[in-house]
């Protein structure tokens, strides 16, 4: 899932200055699971902003709304007429949602109320960890299912470096050394010798370094095109 955190209220308050009619727009998928930007959080944030406006003697109209997903048009199109009544949308979706809505809303700005953090898992309630970089060239079969690109602070493909300290990363005693984990995991799987081979330089072009990425699923596209004819 995509993990995000709500921006600090001070930053949001600064951002919305000058707007009169504001919609706090939540997304009920990933960002709701991480307690940052679902319908409930949108309601709370809208109410906090109204209180602050009142304290400051400002006459603002601040409402909230949420849909299941901001990354597919079918989820927000039914409410777009309502959304367009505002002069600012403060989106509590991830960055994908902000981009996606911005391109479709017309003459109204969409501002981010969320800092989109990473693709992560939820080992315990309220605790999220980054586990995938979305690098476009997965090597998890070589590293025991532990991602060296995002879980190693240096994205080493031939780790560990000299900074491993008691199984922890040099950046912090709170951060596990990914390569320590990889070595242990490969031992457990009986495949340590896979790590003896030097991995060549990667092709990062499939990741965030080759320009904006697109995925085309041909059979779905073909069906879609046939239907539209």
């Amino acid at each position: 899932m995509i993990v995000g955190e709500q921006k600090k209220i001070e930053e949001i308050w600064e951002m919305i200055q000058g707007f009169k009619k504001i919609l706090v727009f939540g997304c009920n998928t990933c960002i709701a699971v991480c307690h940052a930007g679902g319908g409930k959080e949108a309601e709370i944030l809208a109410s906090l902003l109204r209180m602050k406006a009142k304290q400051e003697g400002l006459d603002l109209e601040i409402k909230d709304l949420a849909v299941q997903r901001h990354c597919e048009p079918e989820y927000f199109e039914p409410v777009m007429e309502d959304v367009r009544k505002y002069d600012l949308v403060l989106s509590l979706a991830c960055g994908v949602g902000v981009n996606f809505l911005s391109e479709r809303i017309g003459n109204i700005p969409v501002y981010p109320g969320i800092n989109t953090e990473f693709f992560g898992g939820v080992p315990q309630p309220g605790f999220f960890v980054e586990l995938c970089a979305g690098c476009g060239d997965c090597v998890l079969h070589l590293t025991g299912g532990i991602c060296p690109v995002v879980r190693c602070s240096k994205s080493l493909m031939n780790g560990p470096c000299g900074g491993t300290n008691k199984g922890k990363c040099e950046i912090s005693p709170d951060v596990d050394c990914a390569w320590f984990l990889i070595v242990e995991r490969m031992k457990q799987l009986g495949t340590l010798e896979k790590l003896f081979q030097v991995q060549p330089p990667r092709n990062w072009a499939g990741g965030t370094h080759g320009g904006p990425r697109r995925v085309v699923v041909e059979h779905v596209r073909t069906l879609e095109e046939q239907e539209s004819k």
């Binding site: 560990p160 491993t164 199984g167 320590f180 070595v183 790590l195 003896f196 081979q197």
Partner: peptide
Amino acid sequence: WTPMGDPIDFRPYNLKK
């Protein structure tokens, strides 16, 4: 090479690479 870094039993292989 950090010969005494951990995981210490992997360090010789790390050197080999």
